[in-house]
Amino acid sequence: MKSQITNRMATVLISVCAGLMALIMIALVGYIFYQGLGHVTWHFLTTVASTFQVGGGIKDQLWNSFYLLIVTMIFTTPLGIAGGIYLSEYAKPNRVTGFIRSCVEVLASLPSIVVGLFGMLVFVNTFHWGYSILSGAVALTIFNLPVIVRVTEDALRSVPVALKEASFGLGVGQWYTIKNVLLPAAFPGILTGIILSAGRVFGESAALLFTAGLTSPDLDFKNWSPFAFDSPLNPLRSAETLSVHIYSVNTVAIVKDAPQVAAASAAVLALFVLIFNLSARGLGAWIQKRMSGKS
């Protein structure tokens, strides 16, 4: 009898905790959407920000966020996957490997403002890259790399040993096995991790304040030469992203509709992060289902 009561109490407690979490999530997202979505119009998304007049939008910031995300992912994904492969398949269990693994963990737990200040000292000042997409992307790479390394290592480790043995048993070499058996089997996990980390990168602000900067030039969306100073593609121009924009609008803006702009920007940001998370789950499940051939 007693164990039944304990069991019921534990179940209730766990359910309450889970419910509380869901509630906080729904309340938070609901509040952001309630405050902001009303102001989100096509006009808002496709108009440049305004410093003095009411009616500014977030066109450039939205573009910057995506551009920075893409550049960051181009840096992080190959490096992170390579690191994960090394740690899971090649590294021998010794001190050096242990040290590398602790480095990855420490890097993953660095506060992002520290990464931002480091980026400013090294990339912006020492390397003379200035406040730029490049500086921002490299700072975000430092911030994001450990996550992808970790995700890749975990995904590879969770591939059943039996598959690896099957391939080795056919005389197939290690790299060919990794490429053709392990990576495809780990792919759903790696992809989910990459998309989730993309959500984190997309919403990051502290690491970008002093690396990508608080302003952007007026972008000329007709000039796609990466060398023009006002080209959307120029990697050496400063770039205020959406989340940095929320910060700056909330702290320094003098336009009358600043609260609405901030709320609407927050809603757009939250919406995209939500899309990233949901698509990560959906895509992961879909690929898993297709690969196991039960479709």
């Binding site: 059943p160 039996a162 598959l163 043995e165 099957a166 058996v181 495809p184 089997a185 690969m291 051939g293």
Partner: peptide, 9 residues
Amino acid sequence: FQKPNPFPK
């Protein structure tokens, strides 16, 4: 091997 271990292909 002991347990059938075809590749998920």
